[in-house]
């Protein structure tokens, strides 16, 4: 017997509602009900960070977060970062400029962790940035450029050395 539940939540600033199977993950709901395909399904077991989204300002791997838990929460994905006409945000542009995107599969997950770093308003050391991004795997192994993109965007936002 399949059990369904209504989930009310805010996704990228918009109030939303969906009827979901209680067995579904948040990644399933975001991809299937809302077509937010920046949310990637990689490992499905919390190891790679490809499905990472912000829930009430904290990063969660949506593949191991139940869709029904999203009720009442505010969720953000990469789709919510772009401007009204699809303009890229500074962190997305920095990933391009730094060559931090290769196949791109890990990119949305990394970017949402970067958003948590950037919005904290805190100046992270390079080691702290590494630690904060350590829940992500990049199969193309572009870590240096990814860290560069986050560090430069942080420095630009906080003012000071690039």
């Amino acid at each position: 017997m399949t059990q369904y539940q209504v989930v009310h939540c805010t996704i990228n600033g918009k109030s939303c509602e969906a009827v979901v199977d209680v067995r579904a993950s948040l990644a399933d709901m975001l991809r299937n009900n809302f077509r937010l395909t920046s949310v990637k399904k990689g490992c499905g077991v919390g190891e790679c960070g490809a499905c990472n989204v912000l829930v009430d300002g904290e990063c969660f791997n949506s593949c191991i977060y139940l869709a029904v838990w999203a009720d009442g929460k505010s969720i953000r994905t990469v789709e919510g970062l772009t401007g009204p006409n699809g303009e890229l945000s500074d962190i997305q542009q920095a990933f391009i400029d730094e060559g931090a995107v290769q196949c791109g599969f890990c990119t949305p997950g990394f970017i949402m962790s970067a958003v948590e770093i950037l919005e904290s308003g805190k100046r992270y050391t390079r080691d702290e940035i590494r630690r904060q991004l350590s829940g992500h795997l990049c199969r193309c192994t572009g870590y240096e450029n990814i860290i560069n993109a986050v560090e430069k965007t942080m420095n630009r936002r906080l003012g000071g050395d690039e």
């Binding site: 977060y65 350590s134 829940g135």
Partner: peptide, 9 residues
């Protein structure tokens, strides 16, 4: 523990 996302959940 794990990484940041695991420490959040």
């Amino acid at each position: 523990v794990g990484g940041p996302q695991i420490r959040n959940i």
